[in-house]
Design a protein around this nucleic acid. Structure first.
Lengths: 340, 340
DNA sequence: CAACACTTGGCAACCGGTTGCCAGTCCTCG
DNA sequence: CGAGGACTGGCAACCGGTTGCCAAGTGTTG
């Protein structure tokens, strides 16, 4: 059962265990002929190094953990996929960890696997900046769609993207929009709202914020109702799931999209292209983001921890215009009351 | 950096390392007062057991691997999610492994992580029966949506489901259907076809098979064209992705669904409800499947390997009827030639 | 031919827990 | 009061690699 060990190989090849070990991990340190003989014998015996034994002394596990804020969200699948493939190419194993939208669970989970992984990919972390900075000081970390000073990160470019959304809506004649915000401790939610508000101010569009909402389809109902109440003719939802939920509710209420109201999402998940009307959304190369994050992490694992600046990447986003956005209705609707 | 070890705890608590070890892993073996003192000290020191050191002797890693045939396929996300959550509840970590639809890669990946996990969940494995049986003889394995004699498995019930599909179509007046088959070495593809054919024979419906096709949206084009060529009035696609691809192609060719032709998929992925027309599909409780698979695996890890029969579970599927199926067109279409 | 550098392989300690075995303590029962 | 057993804790070997250090072998140079 427990497969051959380095000892078996050493005996069969007539060398010391240290030689076998080095043949695998430190090729330059052993003679070429010896090395090939060892490898040959190892192959014959079906030897496979025991990763735990290796990790024990070397502290290298060839494993990285990817923590996602909510494994339910299809947005992450692209990310996971990209990360998994890149990790595999580097002979690393990816461990998937779900934070269930809870900072507390996120902490606990990270702590749990901390000893068994070489580093962390934190996607849309819900933890406060300070905690992330602290973690990053101890262990290699790359943030995804989150920015914290001095911590490496990959964030899909979105301030320009948000500008494009607002410009797109403004050019269609919309003068008032509402942003349906994501979770309170989502960095993205704050960041997007800031960008939207700035762009709106610049382009002479009124922008309101509503929320926070959990970024799920089922939250879309309440979000849609709030949006309608706001009187805005354009809705920007925190993500595609929420946007799809909004579309559903609007259809229920016989509000026509895009005739009566326009809807925009974020992420460009697979389903965005399939719903009716197809969703205009700010997409990004999410699989590339996953890849890039792994690459940065691997770099920081390999390289000296010389204090060079933490790498920050911002792959471009792109506004995918589909059918959920259109010209603003002629009679600009006014806010219909609301408790303010 | 490398955190406190049991030696530190032992010293601080004034006991031997073995006592510390037992306090954690074998509570009954140590006095209650000693135990609580040790745990107290450990907590103060922030001690966290090193999983690798533990795995080295105990051969328990608290980790299970989930191998999916293609991580790109949204169908698996439900499965992954269910498995991840169940694993977490048992304090197990889930490792995600992608087989990229290749039996060879699947083998290699399994081999790679074999030493670092306690067992395997194999979802839609593409390996031959013999290989799976062999693997299962060596290591704890639970198959998902695949059946091999004497190997534990969880398979969404589908023969009755296939019957329901055919009955549904027959009751709508369809007399000829075509099954767009999945990959050649997909067990599900074979199994579904058998069930469909049997049901068709029984209900007096003509059934043809076309394919194999990769189960992706982009394969849907060719599949749709072949289906049209077959002259059947109803199309059963191997999964929802393929079905969605088919819908797209049909729309391009101005074939109306369901007026001219009906389309059915499998899996009931999130997007099935969003596409136009919404897809009729055979769904299943996939998250439950993931959960159940983990549970069976955990059982087989804990229990004595007494030769009791390998557990087989078949959670029920359900035919979700949406808009892509409807009455057969009046004038039954005839096969339009085709090269045999 | 001697001195020296370089290459290559082996020895053994070590990583951090786990566990079989032994010994001391305390309790119970005859 | 002594023997037998249950309960606790410690000792030390062990899991399977890694790596610092040493020594033998080989080649180079003066």
């Amino acid at each position: 059962m427990p497969g051959p060990t380095i000892y078996d190989v050493a005996r069969a090849a007539g060398v010391a265990t240290s030689t076998v070990s080095r043949a695998f991990t430190n090729p330059g340190r052993v003679g070429e002929t010896t090395r090939s003989r060892v490898l040959e014998v190892a192959r014959e015996l079906g030897y496979e190094p025991n990763p735990h034994a290796r990790a024990l002394t070397s502290n290298r596990t060839q494993t990285i953990a990817m923590v996602v804020s909510d494994i339910t969200n299809p947005h992450f699948f692209e990310l996971i996929r990209g990360a998994e493939m890149r990790a595999k190419a580097a002979e690393y194993t990816l461990v998937l960890v779900n934070a269930e939208e809870s900072p507390r669970i996120e902490r606990a989970q990270i702590r749990r696997v901390a000893r068994s992984v070489d580093g962390f990919l934190l996607a849309a972390s819900r933890q406060p900046d300070a905690d992330l900075a602290e973690l990053a000081a101890t262990r290699p970390v790359v943030l995804i769609n989150r920015q914290v000073r001095d911590v490496p990160s990959v964030v899909v470019e979105h301030s320009e993207g948000c500008r494009q959304i607002v410009a797109h809506l403004a050019s269609l004649g919309h003068t008032s929009l509402v942003y349906l915000a994501g979770p309170r401790n989502s960095w993205m939610a704050g960041s997007r709202w800031a960008a939207i508000r700035a762009a709106a101010a610049e382009l002479g569009v009124t922008a309101h914020r509503s929320g926070p909402y959990t970024p799920t389809v089922s939250s879309g109902g309440a979000a849609a109702d709030a949006a309608i109440g706001s009187g805005a003719s354009a809705i920007i939802a925190h993500n595609d799931l929420l946007a799809i939920g909004v579309l559903r509710r609007l259809a229920q209420r016989s509000v026509r999209v895009p005739d009566d109201v326009s809807v925009v999402g974020f992420d460009d998940i697979f389903a965005a292209d399939l719903c009716t009307p197809a969703l205009t959304t700010l997409g990004g190369p999410h699989d590339r983001v996953g890849r890039a994050a792994v690459e940065i992490l691997l770099d920081s694992l390999t390289a000296r921890p010389d204090r060079r600046p933490a790498p920050q990447m911002a792959p471009p986003s792109q506004l995918v215009i589909r059918e959920s956005t259109g010209p603003a209705p002629q009679a600009a609707r006014q806010p219909q009351g609301g408790a303010g």
